[in-house]
């Protein structure tokens, strides 16, 4: 019963039953921050840590 009410409240807050725009936006934003540090940031510590990953996954690297 509690679950159902919570869900109903969440659905009401987020607009439609099946779509969570907060979740979609939040997940994409989180992903972009992660990608920035792992794939793009040029500060030495990020570049060096992720160096082999950037090469293997074909991000532009140095």
């Amino acid at each position: 019963m509690t679950t159902t009410t919570t869900l109903a409240r969440e659905n009401a807050r987020e607009g439609t039953a099946g779509v969570s725009l907060v979740g979609v936006g939040g997940a994409i934003l989180t992903a972009l921050v992660l990608l920035y540090f792992a794939g793009f940031a040029q500060a030495a510590q990020y570049h060096d840590a992720a160096h082999d990953t950037r090469h293997t996954l074909a991000f532009p690297c140095h």
Binding site: V19, V24, L34, F37, A38, R54
Partner: peptide, 29 residues
């Protein structure tokens, strides 16, 4: 060096996973 690179692999794939998950949730809806 390997440990850092492998951690970074997870970071990148979790990031792609989050984007894909968001898009898949829209398609399922």
């Amino acid at each position: 060096r390997f440990a850092l690179a492998f951690a970074a692999d997870f970071v990148v794939y979790v990031a792609w996973g989050l984007i894909l998950s968001a898009l898949v949730s829209l398609a399922i809806a």
